[in-house]
Nucleic acid binder design. Sequence first.
DNA 1: CGCCTGACGAAAC
DNA 2: GGTTTCGCCAGGC
Length: 148
Amino acid sequence: MHNVFAFILHNQDIRINVIAMATKRKTAQLKSVKPSGKREDNFFELVYEVARQIPKGRVTSYGAIAACLGAKSSARMVGWAMNGAHNIKPRVPAHRVVNRNGMLSGKHHFTPPDNMEKLLRQEGIRVKNDQVVEFDTLFWDPGTELGF
DNA sequence: CGCCTGACGAAAC
DNA sequence: GGTTTCGCCAGGC
């Protein structure tokens, strides 16, 4: 199907999570890449790969990404990952990741800050007071949507 | 080393 | 139901 996951595996927890994902979702392929040796690289790669699955015109939350990776309490790390998501290839649509209330909490990390909102608007998403309008219906949950 | 700061979020007040 | 606390963990100092 649409998403093939190529992950760098090193940290055991992450490995377990990835295997769990691949098992749940039969179409997902688990492909080992040379280990970088650093946990955050692996986790960040996972985060980036999930974020890339967010459809245009939809949004998700930091926590939702963390949860689907089995790291429910590591939402902050997802935010941290997004901090380094600029200039990553393939492109990571970091503007589609907001906090659990649909607020553009990461806007100050865009240049200029209004760019996050601008990018969302270009995809037909309405933003009011740094808040995604109709967040509930636009919310894309990687856990259920990807079947992880 | 320790201490602090977060694009977070849930639980506890 | 708003505010504070706390778990989380990478990086900066």
